[in-house]
Simulated scan of single mutants.
Amino acid sequence: MARKFLVISAVLSVVVLGVLAWARFSPEESGPEPGAALVAVSVPEMTGAALEGAVLFKTNCAACHGENAAGRNEFGPPLVHKIYEPGHHADPAFLLAAMRGVRAHHWPFGDMPPVEGVSEQDVEKIVAYVRTLQRANGIN
């Protein structure tokens, strides 16, 4: 009985050591580079408020939320994402976030500070841009 226990213990020890060695020496999977886009975004033709919003977004939002609202790894989340669909984050949520800032609650990027220098009308145009991108990417 003692011999059987020793054999089973030895086999289990070898298996555990093998798993640990494999985990230590296997190549690590790396995520996207810092600043890389987090989602792929199809960009439709823009007109009117959405076109104006694209310019405002690039100036005021893209540093964190990425080009075409695709997010930026280690900086900010993509806005072309199901989390930001109108039924979950209505248009006024964007206005409040821009004007007051917002505590982190869906993503690990930290709190969003208020965006200095944008008016309510600017945010409305930015939202028109983001919603246009969302619709073009199947987010309604």
Rank of each mutant, 00 (worst) to 15 (best):
P27E: 15
A50C: 04
R24W: 15
F57S: 04
V102F: 03
P114M: 08
R103N: 03
K125A: 12
S42E: 14
I139S: 05
P92Y: 09
R72Q: 07
R100A: 10
V80H: 00
A62H: 02
D111C: 02
P34Y: 10
R72G: 00
L38D: 02
L12K: 10
G31W: 09
A40W: 11
D111I: 05
A62F: 04
G76F: 01
E52Q: 13
E74R: 07
L20E: 12
P108E: 10
R72A: 03
G66T: 02
L51P: 00
Q134N: 08
L56M: 13
E124M: 08
V123Q: 01
P86D: 10
H105R: 07
G18L: 14
A49M: 07
M112T: 03
G76I: 02
E33C: 03
A50N: 01
A128G: 06
L96E: 09
R72V: 01
N140H: 11
G31R: 09
L133C: 04
P77E: 11
A69V: 02
A97T: 09
V11M: 13
L96H: 08
H65F: 08
M99S: 08
Y129C: 03
W107D: 07
P32E: 11
Y129G: 01
G110I: 04
M112R: 00
L12C: 15
G53S: 10
L95S: 05
C64W: 03
T47N: 06
Q134A: 06
C64K: 05
D91Q: 11
F75L: 12
F94N: 02
Y84C: 07
R103A: 08
S13L: 15
V39D: 09
G76A: 06
A54K: 08
F25K: 12
P78N: 08
V102M: 06
I83T: 14
V43G: 02
W22M: 14
E116N: 05
A36E: 09
T47H: 06
V127R: 00
F109V: 02
P114S: 05
P77K: 05
A23E: 14
L133M: 06
N140Q: 13
S26M: 15
V127T: 09
Q134I: 06
L56R: 08
Q121C: 03
M99D: 05
D122Q: 08
A21H: 12
Y84F: 15
R3M: 14
K58R: 14
Y84E: 04
R24C: 12
Q121F: 06
A36W: 01
V41C: 03
M99H: 04
Q134H: 05
S26T: 15
E28S: 14
A10K: 11
I139Y: 07
G53Q: 06
A2W: 12
M99T: 06
S13P: 07
